[in-house]
Structure formats: structure tokens, C-alpha cells
């Protein structure tokens, strides 16, 4: 029983990582209706920027918030410069550009900051709660919850959040009532990049910083978003924790999986959920008209 409890707690701790990134995935999906395959690499790049600032002598929190702002502007710029001309281009073009961005960020980070693994500081004190779960994980859990509440409030109670939803749901009508649809998209990109940056900075103390740190985690972020429902931020966070727990329990109790086949768990989760409950556990059903 102890082992079981411990695995659940470890699962929750890992789940916090996935929930963080899943939020960013959902955010961008809400704004642009696409999965951003470059999300992980963007978050990784932001984390490197933060690392460079801390290494340059800035205090943690200054670097933290500066990174968020830089990432926001960066996300905005990516939409305005790269994606705006491709607005009506087919899905393939978008996927191609995502892949291009993955390659660019990954390779540039490696070239600037080399490929050695770096440690990244945590803003939370060392130690653990009753020896079961680290304080950093608990802190990360709360950061994720704060972000979730922030996103919820933003979409529910601010004009600009409502406008973003309108722009995503029905661009033409939104444009007719005076919403600047293009800028709403850009804003969505900016916010997703900022959330991704927070996720990256929260994850890096655990998995260490290197240019390839995000590939596996992004897969789990996608799995969480899919399990929870791609249209629901709350679902994505719940999905994140769920995936974390499933991953750990499967690793412990199914001997064939162990610690080596964890990525396969994500693969199986994604395919299974898409097959049997394509809208996820908490998502809304979307009907297409002919």
C-alpha cells in the first residue's frame, strides 16, 4: 500500500510537469485550432534565455518575469511574421512550418549554449514533504493551478479573453463585430509561448536543461491534452495529473513496461483516447457541418 501511495504521489509530481505543458498546448489550440509541434522547443528556448540571464547575474525572479515577457513578445512575433502570410494555407503548410521551427530552435539552442546538460535553479526551497514529494513539485503544482485560474479568469471575465474565444470560434462574425481577429491569433501565440516558458522553467530543475529535454515531455503534454480534452484547459491539467499517475503505476505494476517503455505508454494513451473518446474525458463534442 505504501508503494502504491508513493507511486501516486510521484505520479502527481510528474503530472504537474505534463499539466504545465498541456496548458500551453491547449492555449495555442484554442487560439489557432492546431497542435503546435514546436511548443516544446519554444519552451526549451525560453528556459535557456532565463538560464543565460541568471548566469549573467540577475536574480531568479527578475529573470523569471523577464523571460515570460520575452517569450510573450517572441510568440507574438512568430505569429505576425511567419504565420500571418500563411493564414489560409492548407494544414500541411502549417505542419511544415512547425517542424521548421522545431529544427530552428533545437539547433540554435545547441549552437549558442552547446549540448552539455546544465542544472537549472528552483525558486522553491530544497527538501521534501514527509519524504514523499519534493517541495519543488509542490510549488510547481501551485504554479500550474495559478496559471489555470488565471487562464480561466482571462477567458471568462475579460473582454479581450472573450474576444479571443469569439475569434477562434467564428472568425468571420468576430471580425464583423469589430474584433481584430489577426491580433487575437497573435495574442494566443504570445500567451501560449509565455505559458510554455513558465512550464519550461518549472520543468528544467527536474529534468535538467539540454536542447532535447522537451521532446519526450511534449509527447506527454500532448497525451495529457488529449486525455483531458483538447478544448478544455481544466481538462488538460486534470489530464496531466492523470497521465502522470497512469505512467507511474504502469511502470511499477506492469513488469513489461518498467522505466524503459514510458514513451510507449504515452503513445498507447494517445491512440486509445483518440480512438474511443476523441474529445477527451472533459472535452466538448465538435460537429462539422457539410
Amino acid at each position: 500500500m505504501d508503494l502504491f501511495l508513493q507511486q501516486i504521489l510521484t505520479g502527481l509530481a510528474n503530472g504537474a510537469i505534463y499539466a504545465c505543458l498541456a496548458l500551453a498546448v491547449v492555449m495555442i489550440y484554442q487560439a489557432i485550432d492546431h497542435f503546435n509541434f514546436a511548443q516544446g522547443e519554444m519552451a526549451m528556448f525560453s528556459t535557456y534565455i532565463c538560464w543565460a540571464m541568471i548566469a549573467g547575474g540577475l536574480p531568479y525572479w527578475v529573470a523569471f518575469f523577464a523571460t515570460i515577457i520575452i517569450s510573450f513578445v517572441g510568440g507574438l512575433a512568430i505569429e505576425r511574421i511567419i504565420f500571418k502570410p500563411l493564414h489560409s494555407a492548407p494544414v500541411l503548410s502549417h505542419v511544415v512550418v512547425f517542424i521548421g521551427l522545431v529544427a530552428i530552435f533545437n539547433s540554435t539552442a545547441g549552437a549558442i549554449w552547446d549540448h552539455t546538460i546544465k542544472t537549472f535553479p528552483s525558486p522553491f526551497p530544497d527538501g521534501s514533504f514527509a519524504g514523499l514529494i519534493g517541495l519543488h513539485e509542490i510549488g510547481m503544482f501551485f504554479v500550474t493551478l495559478i496559471m489555470l485560474l488565471g487562464i480561466f479568469g482571462f477567458f471568462r471575465f475579460t473582454r479581450i479573453g472573450m474576444a479571443m474565444q469569439a475569434a477562434a470560434a467564428n472568425p468571420d462574425s468576430a471580425g464583423l463585430v469589430g474584433i481584430r481577429v489577426g491580433w487575437m491569433l497573435a495574442l494566443g501565440w504570445g500567451l501560449a509561448a509565455a505559458i510554455g516558458a513558465v512550464a519550461g522553467m518549472m520543468i528544467a530543475p527536474i529534468v535538467f536543461l539540454d536542447p532535447n529535454m522537451m521532446l519526450g515531455i511534449l509527447l506527454y503534454g500532448f497525451a495529457s491534452a488529449i486525455v483531458g480534452g483538447i478544448s478544455s484547459p481544466g481538462g488538460a491539467v486534470a489530464g496531466g495529473f492523470l497521465v502522470g499517475i497512469i505512467e507511474n503505476l504502469a511502470g511499477t505494476y506492469i513488469p513489461a513496461i518498467g522505466s524503459e517503455l514510458k514513451l510507449t505508454v504515452a503513445l498507447i494513451l494517445i491512440v486509445t483516447v483518440l480512438l474511443f473518446k476523441p474529445n477527451g474525458l472533459f472535452g466538448k463534442t465538435i460537429v462539422t457541418r457539410v
Binding site: F35, L215, L219, A256, T264, L274, L275, P278
Partner: peptide, 29 residues
Amino acid sequence: PALRLEGLYLALATFALGVAVPQILKSSH
């Protein structure tokens, strides 16, 4: 499963496949 997965979802599932396979090949089993 691709019958059910349109466009981006298929890209996502295959992304998962591509990321997972090296790990499967390395598996001690």
C-alpha cells in the same frame, strides 16, 4: 485508427510513434 483520426490528430499519433520507437528498440525485453 487513422480512420478515426483526421489531419492533425493523425500527425499527433504518428509523432508519438516516431518518438516512442527508439525507446522500444532499446528495451531490454
